[in-house]
Design a protein around this nucleic acid. Sequence first.
DNA 1: TCTTATGAATATCGTACGCTATTCATTTTA
DNA 2: TAAAATGAATAGCGTACGATATTCATAAGA
Lengths: 193, 193
Amino acid sequence: MAPRGGLRTGAGRKPGSNDYHESTRAIRVPLSLWGDLQQYLDSIKLLRKRQTLTKDMVFPAIAPPPLNFPLFASRIPAGFPSPADDYIDQRLDLNAYLVTHPAATFFVRVSGHSMTGAAIHDGDLLIVDRALEPQHDRIVIAAVNGELTVKRLAIKKGIPWLMPENPDYPPLEISEGLDCVIWGVVTQVIHHV
Amino acid sequence: MAPRGGLRTGAGRKPGSNDYHESTRAIRVPLSLWGDLQQYLDSIKLLRKRQTLTKDMVFPAIAPPPLNFPLFASRIPAGFPSPADDYIDQRLDLNAYLVTHPAATFFVRVSGHSMTGAAIHDGDLLIVDRALEPQHDRIVIAAVNGELTVKRLAIKKGIPWLMPENPDYPPLEISEGLDCVIWGVVTQVIHHV
DNA sequence: TCTTATGAATATCGTACGCTATTCATTTTA
DNA sequence: TAAAATGAATAGCGTACGATATTCATAAGA
């Protein structure tokens, strides 16, 4: 059998022919992160593999989730003898941390300065929980004459008031004739630096 | 000169004598993650070196399964919003929204009142991005003598200063002899109501 | 006896290495 | 002529390897 010799330009495995569609590089990581990282990388592979599927073959029932991002999905199983040191073993999922009742939670963008005394500024994003009951001294979203507003709810002698936290704005009594609905309770304020 | 031979039990480098205080293992990662991961690992190293930090104060971000919540538009028109309406014009994943560089992002709990003028209060949770370059007028996390502090970075005539935003606290010049590391840039402040 | 110098022991670290998987021009076969 | 088989070329993958860093029992020196 004769050899099939000769030049083979263009032959060979293609760069980025791995599951990432991208070259890789070895890096050294602490053992406690190794499992998580492995898991994370697997999910990246999976996501990038899906890119080879055309929209004619596979498509989601609803809008695709933001597949963004990174790191370290699950907690490390304990059992690592940590020297008397401050190890980082806490992780945070902002959604879970900031939202208690997902189905009843909404975001509202603040405009105006009536609540600067309560650390609520123009442009901030409020996390509003509609499942919480409005109570005295809580910060609430109220719809007054159909317009949303952020104020602190105060009950004085049985009369509810909407109290701004800025001396330039007046309190508003929720009297009988006022078209006012307490719409939700503010639980968190997200302020962009 | 006679040899110093013989058994040497107990000799040798100790396990966990690296910057992680923990053994490591090589793992292969895609190049696009390599930089972020490198930065993340550097942060871990730095944190484990410091002894004044507790795990309650600083911890890394994670990648949770994406959850979406309804988001209201900036300007909410008059009326009563409900999920059935088209007031909801987008949904929001807080992780994706608040974290730009997940591998380089950490959370820091604020203690103290030196930055109340910048809407940063005692107990707030800061989102800190180590991938951002500290620049003039940005709010940064600095490690001064091993202790974390939040200040606004100011460059005056080439000299960097750490400026509080509370008249009760003094500015701090970052002079040559000072043990100070700008550790990250604050991008968001989460304030619990 | 106490202090210092020495070198065996052993962990860390980045990466090179051996192996496998893939690609495709060429050759062989139908 | 078209399809299948072959094997050179080249990238991916996990880990072993050589070099370096650190520790500390012992020997040498004060």
